[in-house]
Structures are given as C-alpha cells and as structure tokens.
Nucleic acid binder design. Structure first.
Length: 506
RNA sequence: GCGGGCGUAGUUCAAUGGUAGAACGUCAGCCUUCCAAGCUGAAUAUGCCGGUUCGAUCCCGGUCGCCCGCUCCA
C-alpha cells in the first residue's frame, strides 16, 4: 500500500504524537518534540527494550540466561574520550564545492590524476578505469591512465586547486578549498567560553559504556561474556536533517555493548542478530517491511573496518520505499574502543579471566538501535487506512506498544453508567495506561480511540448494572463481546503477553 | 550546502491589493442503550522581519520551516 508520509505527519501532530520542536517560533531544523501520546509510545518501546536486555535477558546458546547490566552515563564526557574514540578526528568530513556545477563532494572521496601538465582531472575514487579513460578522451587529455599519478584530494596543497578539473565539469579551478563539516555538537563546560573548556555532546551512547567498562567490572560481579546496556539521547550535526524524525540532530539510542572473548565473536554476533530481529518482529514489525542487510566493506565505520563487519535491521519507511532505512546496526567493534581508551587514558582495560588466568582485550558485539527511529517505524507500520470506518484510519499498534491500552466508555453520560465506569477506570489505571471518556456519542468515541491506536474499548451499559458485564470492542475487527467486569484486568494482561515473551503476535 | 516546490485555524483545503471562508477536529450544551465524529453553539489562522503602497495574507527582498531531487549519512 502506498502510505503518504504527509498523512502520517499530520496525524502525529493532530493527535499529539510528534510536534515540530519550537513550533510557535517556526520550528528548528532537525529537532522534534514528543507529545502526550508520542512519549507513551516511545516509553513503551524503551521499556520493552530494557526488559528484553536488562531485566529478562535472553537465554544464551549454552541454555543459561546471559548477563547484562544497565548504565546511564553522562551526555558530556571528558573531551579526551572523543579524541580516543576517533570521533573528533574522524567524525568530520572535509567537503569541497564546485563553483561551476554547484555540486558538493567529500574531499577524501576525490581522486586526482596528477601529471606534468596544468590540467588535473578529478574523479570519484571508485570510478572504473573505463569511465576514466572515456572522460580523459572527452577532455582531450592523455588517455593512458598509467601516465598519471593518483593522489587523494586531501593530500594536495590548496595551491594546486587551480589545476584541478572537478568531476562534473570541463574547466579547471572550480573547486573551493575544503571545509570541515564537523558532525559533533560542541559546547562549553563552565560559564566562560574558551578552547580550554570545550566539550562535546555525545554522538553515540556507546562510549559512555566503554568509559565505564572497568567501573562496572569492579562493582557488579559480572564475568565475561556480559553486556552493558544504555538508553539515551545522542546528538549529531547532520548535514541535512530529513524525513520527519528519521534523521534528526537530537535522537535517542538503545545500545548494548556485548563484551566477549575474541574467539567467540562469531557465535555472539549470530546470537544477537537473531535476538534483535526477534525483538523488532515481536513489537509489531512482522511484515515484509523489515529486512536484514550486511554492510558492504566501503560503508563500514572506523571501528568496524576489521572483524566481522556490521549488519543492519532495516525498515521500509514510506520515504525510503522501495528501499529500506536503518533501524538497528549490529556491529563487531572488535577491541577498537577499549584499546583506544586504554592507550589514551593510561588505564589498563584488559580482562583477566579468573578461572583460566587468560588475559585479553575483550571484543565487542554491539546491537545499536534507534529508539526514535523505532517509534517512527511503529507508527508507519500501524497506520492503516480503512474507508469503511468513521475515522477513515486506525493505528494498529500491538497492545503492549499502544499509548493507551484501553478506553473505558460509559454508554451514556448518566450517573448509573458513569459511576461503574469510573470505578473500573480507577482500578485499571493502577496497572495500565487507560482513558476514561464520557463525553459525546459512542461512535465518536470509538473513532477517536481508533485514531490513536487504542486496542480495546470497554463499554458500560444497562446490562452492566444487572449482570456485571461490559462490552469489549476490538479496534481491528470492531467486533464486540461481553466479559465480566472483574475479568477486564486479566483480559488486558493476557493481550500484553506475546510481546513480553518476545513472541510475534498472532 | 545546491536546485526546485511550498508556507492561510489543530488538520485538510478555499478566497482576495480594501483586514479571511468551509469541512473535519477541539470545547460547551442537547440528543443518543454500541460505530450517529448526529443537532445547536463557541473559540481558533494568513510562519517571522523588512520594502513598495493610502492600504499587503496577496507584489518584492530577506529569514525561518516543510516537501522533492542532488549531496551527505563516522
């Protein structure tokens, strides 16, 4: 089905899921606020992840539960941490613009064919020899590639730029000098701004985990292999925030660093990949819109260049379709981070196995998921057009994810209906996020609940007063059945179960 | 960052160089014993700044934001 993102965005605003940040000031590019229902949805996803990781971690390949502990580290850390992690040096891209074509290139992706002459053509570094020769011919230059010296643009002094012919033009000297695009948010710790107290807002939550590896090991009685999990905000100065909340400058991550012996990485990589896929299916992304994909070598991060690489769990968002967008990456970070922090901090971070006396630097398998991206995927997946019902659309959330689990609706606003309804509401809200809605006719109230994805409505009518039963109205089928009022909590509890057991809903 | 498009109630849309109208939503009242978002009423808008003009939501410039394409996405 062709889902128009415009409709999704409009519903999100209209019903209080997601608003533009600073809306009354005209918004701010790359930032979004989560409204009353959005925060419930996001919290539900967050809590389920925390439960799946920290509270009830999965049974490992050996039949016993794996060991994972939680952490909530500071967003701002000692800036040296980001030097060590490679973000200060590597998390910025040198970019050049072509004045002629207005195109922009990453300087480190441009390859120059240097020669004795004064015209040096440039190409994308992956260009095939065939297309290079073709273009050389067009430019009336020597077509023998071996007569040139291949140089990366970043290795050339800017004084040579006047000789360079940009990749999409015919004249030389149109490239600007490289500009740094630093993707790290900077701030200052302390009221005086100077280079002395410059700090960075974390671009990933993972580093806080590595920085606390030793603290956790020394305080928590964990033994290899084990994991440390963390959920929190991260910040990146994206060049071009796009696609609603998909690529924003402030977002939320759910990351788990799994520390293990280097010889066991393959086993754990496969294990976590399977577990994480199961998770996304269980929370409701069970359709063909979910796919898994292994990264190509050319797109690997600085920390994953060695080892087993990275695999993504991806979702087919309306704006990426027919392609997919990343939801979670499962990376083998090797021992890159711990080794780097050991070098830079001077602290020993190796693990000494208490049984075998084996000393080694642990390797890391990292399932890193986007919480905010996950919430967006849930909304897109749930959005269901149904012309036959008054609302025209409903959100098909799994009950465990729905912002409201149920609405309690007295059929009329008379006291004999409102009384028992209020009583039921007060009892249920102790355990579930529920709404009590008294005003307006029943059809209108059902429609409203459909639109915010409330899976069940419990209606109190005259029969309730006689036999103590209420009507359950199912969101997806609109079918009704009567159940005893004192069974309502059990009923809801039962409906939540599949997801907490990490099972795909029927 | 470039190119193109766009910016009117919460949402989706109208209209106009002379100060804005609808539908739905929201709120209030009524009606309703299960899909009747029914009836009555109310509140709510020209993104922001500047220019031209007697007068600008409309024309012009800037800015901010959104969408599409490119670029980018450790």
């Amino acid at each position: 089905m062709d889902l128009d993102m415009k409709d999704v965005v409009a519903l999100c605003k209209r019903r209080g899921f997601i608003f533009p940040a600073s809306d009354i000031y005209g918004g701010i590019n790359g930032f979004w606020d989560y409204g009353p229902l959005g925060v419930e949805l996001k919290n539900n996803l967050r809590d389920l992840w925390w439960k799946a990781m920290v509270v009830t971690p999965p049974i490992g390949p050996d039949g016993t539960p794996v060991q994972i502990v939680g952490l909530d580290s500071s967003i701002i850390q000692n800036p040296k941490a980001w030097v060590a992690s490679g973000h200060v040096g590597g998390f910025s891209d040198p970019m050049v613009d072509c004045r002629e074509t207005k195109k922009r290139y990453r300087a480190d992706h441009l390859m120059i064919l240097k020669s004795e002459g004064d015209k040096w053509p440039s190409f994308h570094e992956e260009s095939e020899d065939e297309e290079i020769e073709k273009r050389l011919k067009k430019l009336n230059l020597d077509t023998n590639v071996s007569n040139y010296e291949r140089v990366n643009l970043t290795d050339l002094d800017a004084s040579f730029y006047e000789k360079i012919i940009a990749p999409d033009t015919k004249v030389a000297g149109t490239l600007t000098e490289p500009k740094e695009f630093n993707l790290m948010f900077e701030s200052h710790a302390g009221p005086i701004q100077s280079d002395e107290n410059k700090v960075y807002l974390r671009p990933e939550t993972a580093q806080g985990i590595f920085l606390n590896f030793k603290n956790v090991l020394d305080s928590s009685r964990v033994r290899m292999p084990f994991g440390i999990a963390q959920i929190g905000k991260a910040f990146r100065n994206e060049v071009n925030p796009r696609n609603f909340i998909f690529r924003s400058r402030e977002f939320e991550q759910m990351e788990m660093e799994w520390f293990c012996h280097p010889d066991e990485v393959e086993k754990w990589r496969d294990f976590w990949f399977e577990e994480r896929t199961k998770f996304w299916r269980a929370v409701g992304l069970a359709s063909d819109n979910l796919q898994i994909r292994k990264h190509g070598d050319d797109e690997l991060s600085h920390y994953a260049k060695e080892g087993l690489g990275t695999s993504d769990i991806e979702y087919k968002f309306p704006f990426t379709a027919p392609d997919f967008g990343e939801l979670e990456g499962i990376a083998h970070r090797c021992d890159f981070d711990l080794t780097a922090h050991q070098e830079h901090s001077g602290q020993k971070l190796e693990y000494m196995d208490p049984v075998t006396q084996d000393k080694y630097m642990p390797h890391v398998i990292e399932p890193a998921a986007g919480l905010t991206r996950g919430a967006l995927a849930l909304i897109c997946e749930a959005y269901t057009v149904d012309e036959s019902r008054p609302s025209g659309v409903y959100l098909n959330f799994h009950p465990a994810l729905a912002p409201k689990k149920a609405a309690i609706l007295p059929l009329s606003a008379k006291e004999e209906h409102v009384g028992p309804a209020t009583k039921l509401y007060l009892a249920l809200r102790e355990e579930f996020a529920v709404d009590l809605d008294i005003k307006q006719n029943i059809g209108k109230r059902y429609a409203r609940q459909d639109e915010i994805g409330t899976p069940y409505c419990f209606t109190i009518d005259n029969d309730t007063l006689e036999d103590g039963t209420v009507t359950v109205r199912d969101r997806n089928t609109m079918a009704q059945e009567r159940i005893s009022m004192d069974k309502v909590a059990d009923y809801l509890r039962e409906k939540m179960k599949p997801v907490s057991a990490m099972k795909v809903a029927a």
